[in-house]
């Protein structure tokens, strides 16, 4: 049912007038930094030490914007007569951010936790070629990666911590066992010595 004629017009005026008295939502960006939400996808940081040059990220990238060069290094066998160990050494790791579509697949797919989302976003360049960032730059961004958000209070232990604890427990158990064995041996030796000393 149409109300009083012109009430719609008045309502329009009222809306704009009310908005005028409210606080503005303008973000004055260069003057004040924006408050980014957690897990913001700003840029991808590289933690080189974890990278094994498995090439999974480069292969899974939908845009093919990750460039990886590497070479093989052989190290002498740990024990004489053993096999020579070969290891991949990273030569180049670059991401072309003019192609990257920030899907995050590379980060998801990395089995060794070498790639991370950083909230850093101010890396505009005047030339598109300069948007291909090399490993040193990616490493710099690594230090801007925030700590992962805390787990829920009653959450399951993270897998890697569980695995590490398991390993540590195992090690501790082994050590304890060894110690016990050693102590037992010492005891036995003492006993043997005592037997010898008992009837010289």
């Amino acid at each position: 049912m149409p109300p009083i004629p012109g009430s719609g017009l008045a309502k329009g005026l009222a809306v704009t007038l009310r908005t005028m008295t409210k606080k503005t939502v303008t973000a004055q960006y260069p003057d004040t930094q924006p408050e980014l939400p957690p897990r913001s996808r700003g840029v991808i940081g590289l933690f080189e030490e974890n990278c094994t040059v498995c090439m999974l990220c480069a292969r899974e990238c939908p845009d093919w914007c990750i460039y990886i060069d590497s070479h093989k290094e052989t190290s002498p066998p740990a024990a004489p007569g053993g096999r020579e160990r070969s290891r991949n050494v990273l030569d180049r790791f670059a991401i072309d951010f003019s192609l990257c579509m920030y899907c995050g697949i590379c980060i998801e797919v990395c089995p060794f936790d070498a790639l991370f989302w950083s909230p850093e976003f101010e890396y505009a360049e005047t030339d598109i070629h300069e948007l291909t960032h090399e490993r040193d730059k990616l490493r710099e961004w690594m230090w801007t990666v925030p700590e992962p958000p805390a787990l829920d209070p009653a959450a399951e232990e993270p897998k890697e911590i569980a695995a590490a604890r398991k390993a540590a427990d195992k090690l501790a158990a082994q050590r304890a066992k060894e110690q016990q064995e050693q102590q037992q041996q010492e005891k036995e030796q003492q006993e043997q010595q005592g037997e010898k000393g008992g009837n010289p």
């Binding site: 908005t19 939502v25 004055q28």
Partner: peptide, 13 residues
């Protein structure tokens, strides 16, 4: 300025 504030903006600053 008025138009900006009526649209929730700040206008020229």
């Amino acid at each position: 300025k008025v138009m900006a504030h009526m649209q929730g903006r700040l206008g020229p600053m």
